[in-house]
């Protein structure tokens, strides 16, 4: 497939809005999911640390 220049490539034969609209939103959706995944992990780790500190303060409560 020879596009004959980048401007032709970006124009997508007149369908630029549809093609790049699809690929762009897909990329945004996946990037958003990755962001949410990382944030969830950060929060889960913070919760683990908080639970650890709490158990260090009153050891009787833990492991129940």
């Amino acid at each position: 497939m020879n596009w004959g220049g980048w401007s032709n490539f970006w124009a997508m034969g007149g369908y630029a809005g549809f093609v790049w609209g699809s690929y762009g939103v897909t990329l945004i959706a996946l990037a958003l999911e990755v962001y949410v995944l990382r944030r969830r992990r950060t929060r889960a780790l913070a919760a683990v640390r908080r639970a650890g500190q709490q158990m260090a303060r009153d050891p009787d409560e833990g492991t129940a």
Binding site: V34, R40, R41, A44, V48, A51, G52, T63
Partner: peptide, 25 residues
């Protein structure tokens, strides 16, 4: 990859009081 990443977070959330979690985290 996404599901494995999420399941790790879920494990941390649910088992945050277990000893091994505090060591792993």
């Amino acid at each position: 990859a996404a599901a494995l990443h999420r399941v790790r977070s879920i494990i941390l959330e649910r088992e945050r009081r277990a000893d091994w979690v505090r060591e792993a985290a």
